[in-house]
């Protein structure tokens, strides 16, 4: 994968939210939801972002689409910086990146039939000529495993899993290259989760899609990803391909996360790393390494100095001062 050009490159992305001042002359409070992260997305792969809630993984997805205007950094799609585009250029560019949301009940307009949604999507981006829209809609419905007769129905007439399929059909209707799945299966029950995940995998294979999969669920991530990013408090702590990450997690946070995955294997005693306390507030993130307040191995250096992402072995990067000790 080394020399291939990424289709999406995120560089030094920062997303701060400014809170209203509580006192008249008080300081403005800043939530550093995403603080200086960089990564590449390669064509055809599935890259997952995992982390606890509030670590900035969903914000990253929203920033890439400019649903929230990022504070700083660059996001280049096919070499063009999305953040420098005018609204008009952006509307056209958005065709290539679509999103599937977490809550299938909130992500479909309750007043529009499935036909109206799909027609609108195709017309806005002008991807399919009018006379071919009908055939394309039938094709899309079949692609996501729904009966074409359902086109005339309203969202409230569907179950959660079916709604998520509709969300996928809508995203696919503009022929995107990249699909961001923002916790797309976490609201569904387990058997439906598997169905949707397999559908996504199948679509990826058939249509050559690139997926950016945002989730807190490690078993889901393990099932679907090629590479995984682990985030903590707005920072990337580890990036690696799936095998390398799950076999040899390096960063103490990743190891703590993985030790929390329940297993069914008998007799295997795993060392369980229990983290103390809660995730600190992104309002005043800890100095130095953001994980030092909860890290069992933290030293004085961790409090002072922020670790950079360093390469452990081909493509496996981590941000920890003492990574060599954990190999």
């Amino acid at each position: 994968m080394g020399e291939v050009q990424p289709i999406l490159e995120v560089t030094n992305l920062k997303q701060y939210f400014y809170l209203k001042k509580e006192k008249l002359f008080g300081e403005k409070q800043i939530v550093r939801a995403v603080d200086d992260i960089s990564f590449q997305l390669y064509e055809g792969e599935t890259l997952s972002i995992v982390g606890e809630s509030g670590c900035g993984k969903s914000t990253t997805g929203r920033s890439i689409l400019r649903l929230d205007e990022p504070t700083d950094g660059s996001i280049s799609l096919f070499g063009e910086n999305l953040l420098e585009m005018t609204q008009k250029q952006l509307r056209v560019a958005r065709k290539d990146i679509q999103i599937i949301f977490q809550d299938p009940y909130a992500s479909l307009n309750p007043r529009r039939t499935i036909r109206q949604m799909l027609t609108e999507a195709m017309s806005i981006q002008d991807v399919v000529p009018k006379e071919k829209q009908e055939a394309r809609m039938i094709e899309l419905m079949q692609l996501v495993g729904l009966q074409p007769e359902y086109l005339e129905r309203y969202p409230h007439e569907f179950s959660g899993g079916q709604r998520q399929r509709i969300g996928i059909a809508r995203a696919l209707s503009v022929n995107p290259k990249i699909i961001i799945c923002d916790e797309s299966v976490s609201a569904l029950d387990v058997s439906i989760q598997a169905q949707i995940l397999n559908l996504l995998k199948k679509l990826q294979k058939e249509l050559g899609l690139t997926l950016l999969f945002i989730s807190h669920d490690l078993s889901v991530v393990r099932h679907i990803s090629d590479r995984v990013i682990v985030m903590y408090l707005g920072k990337i702590v580890e990036i690696a391909n799936k095998k390398s990450l799950f076999d040899t997690p390096v960063h103490p946070y990743t190891r703590a996360l993985f030790s929390a995955i329940p297993t069914v294997e008998k007799g295997q005693k795993r060392e369980r790393i229990i983290l103390k306390g809660d995730v600190p507030s992104p309002l005043n993130p800890p100095s130095g390494c953001r994980f030092h307040t909860r890290c069992p191995f933290a030293t004085e250096q961790c409090k002072q100095q922020e670790p950079q992402l360093v390469e452990v072995k081909d493509g496996h990067k981590t941000a920890c001062h003492y990574w060599e000790n954990f190999l």
């Binding site: 609204q87 056209v92 949301f101 609108e120 999507a121």
Partner: peptide, 26 residues
């Protein structure tokens, strides 16, 4: 604030479409 508004925005809809076709009917 609802996700379906974000969804049509990602599809590339302009503000007029969002306001009159998606917000107003709801």
């Amino acid at each position: 604030k609802l996700e379906y508004i974000d969804a049509v925005r990602t599809l590339g809809a302009n503000n007029v479409i969002i306001l009159f076709r998606h917000i107003l009917p709801n």
